[in-house]
Amino acid sequence: MIARLAAVFLVLAASVQSVAAQSLQSTLFDVLGMPQMVEIAREEGLATAENLGTDVFPGRSDGEWQRKVSRIYQLNAMTDLVEANFTQALSPEEATSLLQFFTSARGESIVTLELSARRALLDEEIEEASKVAATQMAAEYGQHYQLVEEFIDANNLVDSNVAGALNASLAFYRGLADGGAYPAEMGERAMVAEVWSQEGEIRQNMTEWLYSYLLLAYEPLPTQDLQAYIDLSQTPAGAALNRAMFAAFEPLFSETSYALGRAAAEMMASQEL
Score class of each variant (00 low, 15 high):
10 L>G: 01
259 A>L: 11
41 A>Q: 15
141 Y>Q: 11
70 S>I: 14
186 M>N: 06
244 A>Y: 11
104 S>Q: 06
121 L>N: 09
22 Q>W: 10
170 L>D: 03
135 T>Y: 02
21 A>L: 10
45 G>P: 13
154 A>P: 14
153 D>S: 12
57 F>T: 04
25 Q>L: 13
194 E>I: 07
119 R>M: 08
51 N>Y: 11
92 P>F: 14
7 A>T: 10
143 Q>I: 11
60 R>F: 08
243 R>E: 08
265 A>W: 00
270 S>A: 05
112 T>Y: 00
242 N>I: 13
103 T>W: 09
136 Q>R: 03
213 Y>G: 08
171 A>L: 10
178 D>Q: 14
230 I>V: 08
44 E>Q: 12
152 I>S: 02
62 D>Q: 12
119 R>P: 03
28 L>G: 00
254 S>C: 15
203 R>W: 14
17 Q>N: 07
76 N>V: 01
82 V>R: 05
66 Q>W: 02
19 V>A: 12
123 D>V: 13
95 A>R: 06
262 R>T: 07
205 N>D: 04
9 F>I: 07
273 L>H: 09
48 T>L: 14
77 A>D: 04
38 V>K: 05
255 E>F: 02
154 A>W: 15
228 A>E: 04
161 N>R: 10
171 A>I: 12
159 D>C: 01
219 E>Y: 12
109 S>I: 05
261 G>H: 11
6 A>G: 04
50 E>C: 08
72 I>A: 00
268 M>D: 14
233 S>N: 07
134 A>R: 07
263 A>H: 13
20 A>T: 11
150 E>A: 12
117 A>D: 01
253 F>N: 12
165 A>E: 14
194 E>T: 10
2 I>S: 00
97 S>Y: 09
239 A>V: 06
137 M>H: 00
107 G>Q: 02
54 T>M: 08
194 E>G: 01
69 V>A: 15
161 N>C: 07
236 P>W: 02
167 N>T: 04
24 L>F: 14
26 S>L: 14
172 F>A: 15
20 A>H: 10
220 P>K: 14
47 A>M: 08
157 L>K: 11
182 Y>V: 07
189 R>L: 06
73 Y>V: 00
34 M>D: 10
63 G>H: 08
77 A>L: 03
90 L>T: 08
231 D>I: 04
250 E>W: 08
244 A>R: 12
134 A>S: 11
156 N>G: 04
163 A>S: 11
180 G>S: 07
240 A>L: 04
12 L>S: 00
74 Q>V: 14
136 Q>L: 03
